Simulated assay, not measured.
Amino acid sequence: MVLSLNQSKYLNKLVRMEESSDPPFEQTYKYLFKNSILNERNIINPTDPPVIEECQLPLIDLSRMNLGESEKQACKKDISRASKEWGFFQVINHGISADILERMRHEQIKLFKRPFHEKTNSKDLNFSTGSYRWGTPSATCLKQLSWSEAFHVLLSDILGSGGYNNLSSTMEQFAAMVSELAQMLVDILAEELGCKSDYFKETCLPSTCYLRLNRYPRCPSYPNMFGIMPHTDSDFLTVLHQDHIGGLQLVKDGKWIAVRPNPEALIINIGDLFQAWSNDVYKSVEHRVVTNAEKERFSTAYFFCPSYDSIIESNMEPRVYRSFTFGEYRERVQEDVKRLGYKIGLPNFLVNSSLDRGA
């Protein structure tokens, strides 16, 4: 059979798409890009506050926890202060070796360099169905589209897996270490509130916590695109290992701040659940990732989450938020995203809030 010139071009395009590692953003969301030209309100960033100069997050050396009681208590105070004032901080000497972090990054890059059609088949990668995600299916305008791809992997799928390949073995080691770090940090933050209990050990289990492996492809055609749109995290605590490229930004004093990458540090941020549990003492801060026109970016995030039936409530009075379960919170987030294109989050659960259907 002899193919026409147009047919040949079409088949070659299909082959390139099949072999490409990048998700088909432009093909899938072409209606959003078309609408952005017709409607200026959909163009990203015309009215956003400007990003002020790049800065370094509060830096905490966790080796101070082993330098005597006085230095240990001072270190805990610094962790608490950063969580109150910034909602973000970074830690060094955190107990996770540079070798593990480097191997994690190496295996992650290899994973994302696979052809797109292979990444969409999670079973071939021994991940649960639905682990691979990209873009924003609910986006109704460019401001709601995230130019990124990710694997969401439950810890229960990693820990005790036996390390059937280099990726799973490295992920298992990384997850075990970062889990211990997260547990130590939430225990410190709870203690600084005067709360000593096994709440987090009992509710945040391997079956409820997960890793998110992120890749942000180059985005030369749309310099104002978000890698991840502005959001707060729906967990207690997030631990992030990022590369040297940069792109993470957060809100501080009403302004967007660009976070200066520190290759030796892990970034920690407070999630919505901890803000509610602490009665607004610790802050879950809005943050985002911006794209890079020339370089791709990789990061690995660990989300410290409870079981869906866990009750989130503060023992401090007067309470800012009513009691709710994590499952209820997740359900409301999904409803808001489906209806509005973004989540409302904690305002849904304010005491006496008109948004709260459960009050």
Score class of each variant (00 low, 15 high):
residue 79 I to F: 09
residue 80 S to P: 12
residue 80 S to E: 10
residue 80 S to I: 04
residue 80 S to G: 13
residue 82 A to C: 02
residue 82 A to P: 01
residue 82 A to N: 06
residue 83 S to M: 04
residue 84 K to D: 09
residue 84 K to Q: 15
residue 85 E to D: 15
residue 86 W to I: 02
residue 86 W to A: 01
residue 87 G to Y: 10
residue 87 G to A: 01
residue 87 G to I: 01
residue 88 F to N: 05
residue 89 F to Q: 07
residue 89 F to R: 03
residue 91 V to I: 07
residue 92 I to W: 05
residue 93 N to H: 15
residue 94 H to Y: 13
residue 95 G to E: 11
residue 96 I to Q: 04
residue 97 S to G: 13
residue 97 S to C: 02
residue 99 D to T: 07
residue 100 I to D: 04
residue 100 I to W: 08
residue 101 L to T: 04
residue 101 L to Q: 14
residue 102 E to Q: 12
residue 102 E to I: 01
residue 102 E to L: 07
residue 102 E to K: 11
residue 102 E to A: 14
residue 104 M to D: 05
residue 105 R to T: 15
residue 105 R to C: 00
residue 106 H to S: 15
residue 106 H to K: 02
residue 106 H to I: 08
residue 107 E to L: 02
residue 108 Q to A: 10
residue 108 Q to P: 09
residue 109 I to N: 01
residue 109 I to P: 00
residue 111 L to A: 11
residue 111 L to C: 07
residue 113 K to P: 00
residue 113 K to C: 02
residue 114 R to A: 13
residue 114 R to Q: 15
residue 115 P to D: 07
residue 115 P to V: 01
residue 115 P to R: 04
residue 115 P to L: 04
residue 116 F to N: 03
residue 116 F to I: 01
residue 119 K to E: 02
residue 119 K to F: 14
residue 121 N to C: 10
residue 123 K to A: 12
residue 123 K to V: 01
residue 124 D to P: 00
residue 124 D to H: 04
residue 126 N to G: 13
residue 126 N to I: 12
residue 127 F to M: 13
residue 127 F to G: 02
residue 127 F to T: 03
residue 128 S to H: 12
residue 128 S to I: 10
residue 128 S to C: 08
residue 129 T to R: 13
residue 129 T to S: 15
residue 130 G to H: 12
residue 131 S to G: 12
residue 133 R to Q: 12
residue 133 R to A: 04
residue 135 G to H: 07
residue 135 G to F: 14
residue 136 T to G: 10
residue 137 P to D: 10
residue 138 S to H: 15
residue 138 S to M: 09
residue 138 S to Q: 10
residue 139 A to G: 06
residue 139 A to Q: 00
residue 139 A to N: 05
residue 139 A to C: 07
residue 140 T to G: 14
residue 140 T to R: 15
residue 141 C to H: 14
residue 142 L to S: 14
residue 143 K to R: 12
residue 143 K to Q: 11
residue 144 Q to G: 00
residue 145 L to R: 02
residue 146 S to Q: 08
residue 146 S to R: 00
residue 147 W to G: 00
residue 147 W to H: 09
residue 147 W to Q: 03
residue 148 S to G: 03
residue 148 S to A: 15
residue 148 S to L: 06
residue 149 E to S: 11
residue 149 E to V: 01
residue 149 E to I: 05
residue 150 A to E: 04
residue 150 A to C: 07
residue 151 F to W: 05
residue 151 F to Y: 09
residue 151 F to M: 06
residue 152 H to E: 11
residue 152 H to T: 14
residue 152 H to M: 10
residue 152 H to S: 07
residue 152 H to V: 07
